[in-house]
Computed example of a mutant assay.
Amino acid sequence: MGISALKDKSERGFLDGQFLIAMPGVQDGNFARSVVYICAHSPAGAMGFILNRQQDLSFPDVLEHLKLIEEPHTGFLSEQARYFPVLYGGPVETGRGFVLHSDDFSSESSIPVSDDISLTATLDILRAIAEGKGPKRATLLLGYAGWGPGQLEAEISNNGWLNCTPQDDIIFDPNVDTKYERALAIMGVSPEMLSTEAGHA
């Protein structure tokens, strides 16, 4: 399931626009202690972005790689652009960039994810950020997380994930180290309270 699924608003799932928080039993290196923002959920599958994995690349590195700027010109970037967060969004299409951002920026390719958050996956938003004309709040993610039909629902029923309403502060905060604990705190849970055993009434 790819970004095209976001354009089809029909048959949306209950996890649209939700946080997924990995339970201790999730040992997969991509997803252990991860916070994922789900952008699309339907019978066809689900797509989202890991919000608490730093990339080794900086935003100027990405601009240079895409030939949007030349190396000597990186010093002329705005402070926002020089320190703009670049995260590992997931294991699918890791060479592709996606920008989650506030809805004060829009291009023809921007797709609304929620009432106040959009997703843009084209170079125009990177140019705008580099020029200091980008959205007020945004994060660049390389790659995404994807699940096939029924896969995510099965993982949740097997006690793999918690889900809760997201907070913009967690989505856009460049400090990834505390996002796991902060996302759990939305639910009134601390990491120590989590069990790897599924509960059965």
Score class of each variant (00 low, 15 high):
residue 82 R to N: 14
residue 82 R to Y: 10
residue 83 Y to Q: 11
residue 83 Y to M: 06
residue 84 F to Y: 09
residue 84 F to S: 02
residue 85 P to F: 08
residue 85 P to S: 03
residue 86 V to N: 05
residue 87 L to F: 06
residue 88 Y to T: 11
residue 88 Y to E: 12
residue 90 G to P: 06
residue 91 P to F: 04
residue 91 P to M: 01
residue 92 V to Y: 04
residue 93 E to D: 13
residue 93 E to V: 01
residue 93 E to I: 00
residue 93 E to H: 12
residue 94 T to K: 09
residue 95 G to N: 13
residue 95 G to S: 13
residue 96 R to K: 15
residue 97 G to H: 00
residue 97 G to Q: 02
residue 97 G to C: 01
residue 97 G to D: 00
residue 98 F to M: 05
residue 99 V to A: 02
residue 100 L to R: 00
residue 101 H to R: 01
residue 101 H to Q: 01
residue 101 H to A: 03
residue 102 S to M: 02
residue 103 D to T: 14
residue 103 D to K: 14
residue 103 D to P: 00
residue 104 D to E: 07
residue 104 D to F: 09
residue 105 F to Y: 15
residue 106 S to P: 00
residue 107 S to A: 15
residue 108 E to V: 09
residue 109 S to R: 12
residue 109 S to F: 07
residue 109 S to H: 03
residue 112 P to H: 10
residue 114 S to F: 05
residue 114 S to Q: 02
residue 115 D to Y: 08
residue 115 D to M: 10
residue 115 D to H: 13
residue 116 D to C: 14
residue 117 I to A: 05
residue 117 I to K: 04
residue 118 S to H: 13
residue 118 S to K: 13
residue 119 L to W: 08
residue 120 T to M: 04
residue 120 T to I: 04
residue 121 A to E: 02
residue 121 A to H: 14
residue 122 T to V: 08
residue 122 T to M: 02
residue 125 I to D: 06
residue 126 L to K: 08
residue 126 L to H: 10
residue 126 L to I: 11
residue 127 R to S: 06
residue 127 R to E: 07
residue 127 R to Q: 09
residue 129 I to G: 07
residue 129 I to T: 08
residue 129 I to C: 07
residue 129 I to P: 02
residue 130 A to E: 03
residue 131 E to D: 15
residue 131 E to I: 03
residue 131 E to Y: 11
residue 131 E to H: 12
residue 131 E to F: 04
residue 132 G to R: 08
residue 133 K to N: 15
residue 133 K to W: 09
residue 134 G to F: 11
residue 134 G to A: 11
residue 134 G to P: 12
residue 135 P to M: 13
residue 137 R to Y: 15
residue 138 A to L: 08
residue 138 A to G: 15
residue 140 L to K: 10
residue 141 L to C: 12
residue 141 L to Q: 12
residue 142 L to S: 03
residue 143 G to C: 14
residue 143 G to Y: 10
residue 143 G to A: 12
residue 144 Y to S: 13
residue 144 Y to R: 12
residue 145 A to P: 06
residue 148 G to I: 07
residue 148 G to E: 15
residue 149 P to L: 10
residue 149 P to H: 07
residue 151 Q to I: 05
residue 151 Q to Y: 04
residue 152 L to H: 11
residue 152 L to G: 09
residue 155 E to C: 04
residue 155 E to I: 10
residue 155 E to N: 05
residue 156 I to F: 10
residue 156 I to T: 03
residue 157 S to Y: 12
residue 158 N to G: 12
residue 158 N to F: 11
residue 158 N to M: 14
residue 158 N to I: 01
residue 159 N to S: 07
residue 159 N to C: 10
residue 159 N to E: 02
residue 160 G to N: 07
residue 160 G to A: 01
residue 162 L to E: 09
residue 162 L to H: 04
residue 162 L to K: 04
residue 162 L to F: 12
residue 163 N to C: 04
residue 166 P to N: 02
